[in-house]
Design a protein around this nucleic acid. Structure first.
Lengths: 204, 204
DNA sequence: CGGCTTACCTAGTACCTACTAAGTAATTAA
DNA sequence: TTAATTACTTAGTAGGTACTAGGTAAGCCG
């Protein structure tokens, strides 16, 4: 005695739109629980889908993570360039288009407005330190790439000195962001960063 | 037709010793997968125990995490004080026993020798940013406490300036540690820190 | 309208999750 | 030497995990 199929009142969305929704929901959930703590069931629920319905769009859990990261990288560089009033290509070019300090200020200001996404990266950044993590390579490459980009526009004479400064700048931003995420009432991210930057960029 | 009970060749350890082993194994596993990714089965396997055997000692998964953190705090402050040749109590006292820079150098040098434990904290620090995490309160308190301790021995005139410096020092250490953990071949933690400290403590 | 694509479904697999209940046997104390 | 303690076991519960196979129906194009 089979129960007759129940008509569901689910919206049938075009793939692109559904994908966008999936990525948005996943971003929030990873920020909360990390990738290891993420469950496809929760993502599906957040999209009013079944789990196989979700898998139809993303294929697998690992793929989903990759999709989230790629989407972030894409939008991030785009909006950052826009905020600085510069074309994305010349952001990291040789010419003195923008200073390191300007880039950092823009970055921090935008991050201050999207704590959820900052948290996503903070959690994944730490989780992915283990070589078995599906985002291990992604973050390793990302670190090298970021360091290279920042050191290119860093002030200072020697190449080594510019690299060191770039590393310090990244470390400081990451560290302050965590303190801020932990106690947003007590810490103002932009203000803390500017104070730290005054010290890091002193005499330049 | 029951299979007869198989005689296991398992060591029966005194509680204290078994607990020590459990904490050690758990520390390694959390560093790898985070708390959300930790499974009691894996911990039990690592100790050559069954899961209920493990639960006999720790009660629950949350308790296990608390035990790990408490154990770390205990040993960490003890060995840090020893390394500086100071009693633990006067480490954070009013008198000019040690400078902030000395404390940081000692901290970084010791951390450089135990990457697994640094990774444990890096992962938990990020994961526990979510209010539902069992270590949420622990890390929030820890951040406040650390900030207070460091700012007490920080150089500088105003109280606000000392707090700011303490925050920057913590941020820089955390950030450099992550870069180091991600690419230990490319980065020397102690060296990076000293270079950064030269800048942070400049003119003091 | 008729056929094709595709968004999404139900059903099921094989396994892992933390945790409990209740019992056994090794160790220690009287 | 017996009695109490306790480290650890097997067995079981109730539910969650990612993922697959195969089907249904909604929407688009001719």
């Amino acid at each position: 005695m089979k129960t007759p199929p129940i008509r569901r009142e689910r919206a049938r969305l075009p793939a692109a739109e559904r994908r966008r929704q999936i990525i948005e929901v996943t971003t929030r959930l990873i920020a909360e629980r990390g990738f290891w703590g993420l469950s496809m069931q929760d993502v599906a629920d957040g999209c009013a889908l079944t789990v196989p319905g979700l898998l139809h769009h993303v294929g697998s859990k690992d793929n989903l993570l990759v999709a989230v990261l790629e989407h972030r990288d894409e939008t991030d560089t785009r909006t950052l360039a826009a905020e600085l009033g510069v074309a994305a290509e010349e952001l990291w070019g040789e010419g003195p288009g923008v200073t390191l300090r300007q880039v950092c200020s823009a970055l921090v200001r935008r991050n201050a407005a999207q704590p959820e996404i900052v948290r996503l990266f903070a959690v994944l950044e730490a989780e992915s330190l283990a070589p078995g993590h599906p985002a291990y390579r992604y973050f390793k490459l990302r670190q090298r790439r970021t360091l290279e980009m920042l050191s290119r526009i860093a002030p200072g004479s020697g190449e080594a000195a510019r690299w060191a400064l770039a590393g310090q700048v990244i470390a400081m931003m990451d560290g302050l962001q965590i303190q801020w995420l932990r106690d947003r009432a007590a810490i103002d991210l932009v203000e803390s960063w500017e104070a730290a930057a005054d010290r890091l960029f002193a005499g330049r």
